[in-house]
Amino acid sequence: MVVKDVVQNPYFADPQIDYVYKANITVYGNELTGIFIAKKINETTHRIVFTTEFGNTLLDFEISETDFKVNAIVDELNRKILITTLKEDFRLLLKKDFAIERQFTKGNEEVLKSNFEKNDLYLFRSLSDTKLLKIAQTSKTKEKKTISFASENGIFADTIVIQHYNLKLRIALNYFKQN
């Protein structure tokens, strides 16, 4: 039996932490801003909430690798294609364990090949300190989307960018330090 290596995404893994970010979402030229909140509520599931700056809830999801529940969504965002896209994005963003099929190095980065929901994934880590820098989801040879992370300490992401290449959708998250 071959035991595969498992690599972890540490950035949303701690159930003690309220992960709170300022969010800027650009979708087909429209800009939507607000507050993005993620919290691990049990072993398998995260709660994801997006609110306006005033605190009105725009969407509220519960999401695991196998389950998905919409607790609330405003009419303006209640579109099947949008919900499906966000579900897939958040599922990948929140996924902790990645089974690695093979790996190679490229410049200062190690590239680890994995897969998730029938898509090829490539995880990019810094060679010097193994910080997770990027997850790229591809189909055949084209990148479909990437999630880029900037992290000071390697366990918490200060900024995150989810960039789609086949849709005009970009989600930028900036951690905000509270008092």
């Binding site: 309220d18 507050i35 909140i37 509520i41 709660r47 909430v49 005033f54 605190g55 509270q178 008092n179």
Partner: peptide, 15 residues
């Protein structure tokens, strides 16, 4: 000072 309270969070979000 604005406090956003959600039951599942450890702390209110303060802006």
């Amino acid at each position: 000072v604005q406090y956003k309270h959600m039951d599942f969070l450890a702390k209110d979000i303060e802006t």
